[in-house]
Design a protein around this nucleic acid. Structure first.
Lengths: 334, 334
DNA sequence: TTGCACAATGGCAACGTTAACATTTGGGCG
DNA sequence: CGCCCAAATGTTAACGTTGCCATTGTGCAA
């Protein structure tokens, strides 16, 4: 075998095909102003040499990368996989690629995500926010780099998109009240979770909107373990007929906790979760929960960047509502 | 505000700082042969203009992208999130970025993944295989593009890495036999899953190695539902004292299925899952399962590419063993 | 004073691609 | 037969960066 040539360029193809470099370029882009038989000759040369267009040369010339950067502080997190599915699907649709970057969360700032991205070949960026970045209020995106934040908060300079956590709680609370429950108890999450806090607000405010003073909440930590403890605690409370847990794991834990105290679900107490993250893991008793469309969230974010393409588009804020999925863990008191 | 200049280049910085472009470049790379005070002047100019090095120019010059491409046929899949965590961590370590691409699975070939990547700015690529690609035997990676496959199969031209599914089954079966069980029943998965079939082989061969003829397996479909049905079926079988399910969802389903027939777990029947994918979802009864280190799998793949950097490294095959995590669903008969 | 080593900086070219413009060729029409 | 238009192809330059080599300046030993 001959030594591998570093890389095959248009120049090599042009030489072999006996045409100019420009004609090769035109052939690559299937321009109508190249004679079919010439095209075929060029294509044959490309095949023979194994020509692949060089991305760097192309981007340098065009000034565009056709790539969207995604910055994550935590890769592992509920819904991230579905979001990525959405990123990839939307990118595909626009002929874009996705560049994934893990950002160190110390400090937890948008600036650090932004500067991390600035040296990468991307035309725009998406930041997945789990907590409140220290510089949320003051952050401004890099010039020329369209930036979309995945969060419920609104930002003056960046478009934002996320699941509507407030509405999620509204749906759950109104669903339970509609089934005749006099109030809804709540198992919350750690306070630093933005989406969790928004769920908490939704619960509280929806109850108030119905003239009900929210009962004391039980603070959980996302684990089934904490849901179990919460269930045992709430089993003591005779006013508690309906529990809304901030996620599915706590909901399942809560059910077991209630049962360990002799309460039956849903006969004595109804339980609702959020996320639909565990599937029908208990096949004979499906959890009533709220399903989010994280794929759609991801698609929206990338669409915003890749769809704008040439023309800069304005700042927008999008909240995507979840869908309440009825299972077997809620009792209708009416 | 003045109209935004397209982009700031070394030339602009050089002009403002009153030095040559080369000195700017040297400053960017913190070369020791630039006087500190000159460096400071250049840095000030960079700050003032908001200079960011252009990736395309740089890659074009260097002939390297410092990026690893990841091709997935299915983004959503058990363990993918952890794998991505591994990709990102290893990439970070080497100063690389990750480019993520969804590959259409029609046809399901390595060639389609490869050609999809060929036009992207990547130095090497990782393909996550879930099934058997049609061209597995004949595939050859693009010249100059180091290719790593995430699969248990070995390939003559591509390095491969994956969890050791065979060893996983061996561990489970020997663990159960060691607890005094006379045989181990198995709930399998759909036949097109490579890793699932390997688990099945491991189960079968380990039993045979211990002189036990494997009982008839029950075919499942990954869902808790199918595990439930399997549990009910196996509850009839008096020889069945230990069940090994191909994943955790089926294991949980199986437990419920057994219980629905009056069998107690683990008193009457022991159950083991695989994946540790659901956490301690049943807080008062932890499932005995096998935990895989998918993050390590991801890191190995990217290390292989980014770590080689200059020197091409040879083809290697890596299997990473899982760890059996003892829970409360196995009874010791001894 | 000269010569020399070394530190600091500049000039030039090239990486691969393609937009813009230039040139050649063939054919239709007055 | 000459003119002009359109189709097909070629030439040039530029995108931003950096490796290589050339140049200038500075201090020190001979």
């Amino acid at each position: 075998m001959a030594a591998v040539k570093k890389s095959v360029s248009v120049k090599d193809v042009a030489r072999l095909a006996g045409v100019s470099e420009q004609t090769v370029s035109r052939t690559v882009h299937d321009s109508p102003s190249v004679r079919p038989e010439t095209k075929e000759r060029v294509r044959a040369a490309m095949r023979e040499l194994g020509y692949r267009p060089n991305f760097a040369g192309r981007s340098l010339r065009r000034g565009k990368f056709k790539t969207v950067g995604v910055a994550m502080f935590n890769i592992t997190g509920t819904g991230n996989l579905d979001r990525m599915e959405g990123f990839a699907a939307a990118a595909d649709k626009h002929g874009y690629a996705i560049t994934l970057t893990k950002v160190d969360g110390h400090p937890y700032t948008l600036e650090s995500a932004s500067s991390r991205m600035s040296a990468l070949p991307v035309d725009g960026m998406v930041v997945i926010m789990n907590r409140m970045p220290a510089d949320f209020g003051t952050f401004e995106p890099l010039p020329g780099m369209q930036t979309v934040l995945v969060t419920m908060l609104e930002h003056p300079l960046c478009s934002t998109v996320d699941n509507d956590q407030f509405d999620c709680s509204r749906q759950v609370v109104e669903y339970l009240l509609g089934r005749g429950h006099k109030t809804v108890h709540f198992i919350s999450c750690p306070e630093r979770s933005l989406s969790g806090m928004r769920r908490e607000e939704g619960w509280r405010e929806t109850l108030r909107a119905h003239g009900i003073e929210p009962p004391r909440l039980v603070r959980g930590d996302w684990t089934a373990q904490s849901g179990y403890a919460a269930g045992q605690a709430l089993a003591e409370d005779p006013t508690c007929t309906a529990i809304y847990a901030s996620n599915d794991a706590m909901a399942y834990g809560c059910i077991r906790g209630l049962e360990s105290c002799g309460k039956r679900v849903p006969e004595d107490v109804s339980v609702v979760g959020v996320d639909d993250s565990l599937g029908d893991i208990v096949p004979d008793r499906r959890l009533t929960t709220v399903r989010f469309d994280n794929k759609r969230v991801g698609m929206w974010a990338v669409d915003k960047i890749a769809g704008a393409d040439g023309g800069a588009s304005g700042v927008e804020h999008m909240l995507i509502p979840g869908v309440l999925v009825e299972g077997d863990t809620v009792r209708d008191l009416c």
